[in-house]
Design a protein around this nucleic acid. Sequence first.
DNA 1: CCTACGATTCACT
DNA 2: GTGAATCGTAGGC
Length: 194
Amino acid sequence: MTADYLRELLEQDVLEAAPALLGATLVRGERRARIVEVEAYRADDPACHAYKRRTPRVEVMYGPAGIAYVYFNYGVHWMLNIVAHAVDDPAAILIRAAEPIAGIDQFRSSRSVQKLAGLLSGPGKLAQAFDIDGNLNGIDLLDPSSDLHLLPALEPVTRVLKGSRIGIAKGKWEDVPWRFVDDSALEWASRKKV
DNA sequence: CCTACGATTCACT
DNA sequence: GTGAATCGTAGGC
């Protein structure tokens, strides 16, 4: 898959683009990790930050597809999203978990944990391991010259598990199956059960 | 201005 | 399995 094709997908349909993101490599310097779990959020979906309201925080979600939407939550964690913008229909994909590929020592020192399992198995953990914070909000993740960027999967992931999203309050479309996990990489996902 | 709370994680029990 | 930590954002007054 090429970056151009991935960007096209992101521009067209967040629900198609999200599973296509599985297997992509997230790169920052020496650090590399293979994305194994994502979630989709869409403007008509009550759990989406851009639901019915255009505020300064979500402004990047209205910008071009492929840029990073980074936000802080629980007063503790940064979250990395990729904007999947269709005209007048902002959407984003939350990167939830990845398999460490390279730069393991840097992941470890950023997270101060030793075990490989659990190093990147959650959106807050992943952001911490990559030293992602609000400074990266708005950068182009599909531009290889970006400090933090994404290399599309060479081959699409064949078996994709779909489940309901994590941490969604009742009444906010908590049951839509918009969480996508690479079945062959469950050990790196944030929770085993999908 | 002031308050409530969230796309979570970790340390405990 | 439960609860605390912790702060930017949004929304109400």
